[in-house]
Design a protein around this nucleic acid. Sequence first.
DNA 1: CTAGCGTGTTGAACCGCTTCGACAACTGCC
DNA 2: GGCAGTTGTCGAAGCGGTTCAACACGCTAG
Lengths: 336, 336
Amino acid sequence: MTTIDDVAKAAGVSASTVSYVLSGKRTISAPTRARVERAIEKLGYRPHAGARALASARTAVIALMVPLRVGVNVPVIMQFVAGVVTRARDFEHDVLLLTQDDVSGLDRVTSGSMVDALVMMDIEADDPRVPLVAAAKQPTVLIGLPQDPEGLSCVDLDFEAAGRVAVRHLVGTGHTDLALIGSPPEVLRRHTSYAERLMRGLRDQAAGSGAAVTVEACDSTPSGAVQAVDTLLDTAPDTTGVIVHNEAALPHVLARLAERGRVPGTDVSVVAVCPTDVALAQRIPMTSIDLPAEDIGKVAVDMVMARLGGDQPSETRLLAPVLTERASSAPGPAAR
Amino acid sequence: MTTIDDVAKAAGVSASTVSYVLSGKRTISAPTRARVERAIEKLGYRPHAGARALASARTAVIALMVPLRVGVNVPVIMQFVAGVVTRARDFEHDVLLLTQDDVSGLDRVTSGSMVDALVMMDIEADDPRVPLVAAAKQPTVLIGLPQDPEGLSCVDLDFEAAGRVAVRHLVGTGHTDLALIGSPPEVLRRHTSYAERLMRGLRDQAAGSGAAVTVEACDSTPSGAVQAVDTLLDTAPDTTGVIVHNEAALPHVLARLAERGRVPGTDVSVVAVCPTDVALAQRIPMTSIDLPAEDIGKVAVDMVMARLGGDQPSETRLLAPVLTERASSAPGPAAR
DNA sequence: CTAGCGTGTTGAACCGCTTCGACAACTGCC
DNA sequence: GGCAGTTGTCGAAGCGGTTCAACACGCTAG
């Protein structure tokens, strides 16, 4: 292993000079810098991460806690992860992967000074991890919203606004009998906040627009989708505007609607809340409210880095929903 | 931050004693150990990871390089990841997440002593990363097989055997006109070895059994599946035995086969190569050769840990394929 | 001509832990 | 009773960086 002393010797300077060349924290004359850089290059020198962490109290690593549990949509998660990892690299940071079920991992990486900061996904309303990270010395950003985001940094799609936008779109195109086909029951049971926020927005706007809205939970399986659609059409047969917030079930929901004589884009208008690529991968291009998973991941890293740098206050950022109209929209009864 | 000295002071012993209590590398009397453990508990002491890494040359972290590129099936990847992470935790290790496109990450974590070992997924035949890890001081396990696995540790499903098993099953149930609906073209273009190994096994066994086998690449999209099925049925209309190795396309392949008058499980026999949960999530339970992704991940960690411990030689482990017959099998022409 | 200043570089003190060699206290044996 | 062997504990030397105070040097200003 080549050390900073080897480099210093090779360049004919002291170790501290090498360190300052690397960190840029002091001015170094051009010729000296050049000699040092050449030595680094020649020796293939890489600072020892542990030594650096010890001396500087910085690890250049952030922890990312991802859910590996049922009911969450894996490809979407990967988009978050991709966003976090690529943006972290922009800040010269690496990512340590923690899983949601390993709550002790939080304390481990936190108290053990393994990471500079934390990003946590899939926050529930009353999440047991929230008090833990609030007590940690490392800044944390939550993807999703806990019940009480006081003093915490959070980022997410503004699901409440998304609910309103969806309803406005459907009502505006002539629909008054609306329905949400949403997350699996276990997600709702956990009180994962995005599901509740979406419903709130939906109901608020529906009430304000004089529209009715039925809500169905939906398992992320083909049969779950079939069941949800069947129950919906039995309960509220007049439904013509459907909002689907369940990536995995989406194709089967569309298929079942068609089987039951409600062809999406013709007889019923369907708005999906999902990443754009998912919306485009359906049998017909879906009108959708984009869930910009990768962007949210990136923003999370931006926020956490900002707090690592200056002494930024914590903030909550809710990304404005964007609805794009595509082939699954159709005029409703009131417009015909 | 509480340090080992704080603990030592609180327990009335020296720092080295605390260290030995923690590591168990020397015998400590029961009363002393108890005092130390109580102090650790009371102070909530966690050793500083960086300091530990510096002094012991061990980080308790392994790097995992995952593909985030097109053409790979995301849920399956997550299963590998889950296997790796959970097994790593069994060995008291954490996982640093690297992405495939960041080749320089290899050198960074390796030369910077950020990790003790490496696990790399999705190895291509002539993978540029292989020489890099071969030169690294950290042991590495590859998930997948490079062209020349000399001196490297690898683990994977034995796809060649899987190909043979699939053909034997189909031929044994009366099919002689077989087809593979496989990976997307870009995967084949990369010469990802599993695709090629599967084909080799398929062709070998087909040749030996006097069966014909047509091969179709298949994009991981609905339309890709439709196209692959259509091309297949145009090229080889007599096909009655189909092997599908493409999780994402599988449902659409089945649907299209049915649309074209070849109902899986009745008119054609379909064998899927995929995780069991995917096989069971189709419209009919699929006869499948299990891709035990999570297990493979775990085995990879086991292997890498074994090499970290003793000076094990490198080895290649190919997991034997297991075919489970389910509803998508049907007797072929020769058996009717 | 010298005091004072800014610039570039250095030595040394940490950062918190592991581990080796030394040593004190006990044990059992001849 | 003395000696070799265990057992349990400790002190100190690193591990490889960062950073602070100090210093040497060449300038400018007075």
